[in-house]
């Protein structure tokens, strides 16, 4: 009985943090990525390896959590931060393009609209893509991780960033 209470407590917290469609089976989340054990996770179907934390956060392997505050950067700061970065003993990290970052969303859930097993402590907010708007020179595409939608935002705004690299 006591265990049940604890479990239901945990469940109710999870329910508060993320809302999913009632016919969506969140158990498929556990199979969606490969945990590389180094703070990165790979989508083998799309050939993309993601940082499990946003830039600015630190991967805490013991607690399977991202700790610290995610950095809020301008578009140029985000690009420069990624350029030449070595993380998890790998280089080739970059800001994802709009299609890649859109593929990371979990469209059946909101706040945050992401697989929380692999990407915990994700701010429910805009994240930069590397894709500029070719129509509006002041803006670049972002993906909102509160509900998966895309939009264009001023490049001088301070926005979160998660990096990706092509799995090889």
């Amino acid at each position: 009985m006591r265990y049940f209470c604890i479990l239901s407590l945990i469940w109710s917290f999870a329910a508060i943090s993320q809302t999913c469609l009632s016919d969506f089976d969140t158990e498929i989340h556990a199979e969606e990525f490969i945990d590389n054990g180094d703070g990165t996770a790979t989508n083998a179907v799309l050939g993309l390896t993601w940082m499990r934390c946003s830039l600015g956060q630190t991967w805490d392997a013991d607690n399977q959590a991202c700790v610290g505050d995610a950095s809020e950067l301008t578009w140029q700061q985000a690009l420069k931060e990624a350029h030449g970065l070595v993380y998890a003993d790998k280089s080739g990290w970059r800001v994802p393009n709009v299609k890649e970052l859109s593929s990371l969303t979990e469209r059946h859930c909101v706040r945050p609209a992401i697989n929380e097993i692999f990407f915990p402590n994700t701010p429910s907010d805009d994240f930069w893509t590397s894709t500029p708007s070719v129509v509006d020179p002041q803006r670049a595409w972002v993906i909102a991780f509160f509900n998966s939608s895309n939009s264009i935002k001023d490049k001088n705004l301070f926005v979160f960033t998660r990096l990706v690299r092509t799995a090889d």
Binding site: K80, S103, P132
Partner: peptide
């Protein structure tokens, strides 16, 4: 396995360059 975006143009904070200019101060953009 995933399509690129179609964006070959490079951009700075204020410009989108359509003439294949390389904008090195905005590295790694799409």
């Amino acid at each position: 396995p995933i399509n690129d975006t179609g964006v070959y143009q490079q951009a700075s904070n204020t410009q989108v360059l359509t003439n294949r200019s390389h904008v090195g101060d905005y590295p790694g953009q799409d």
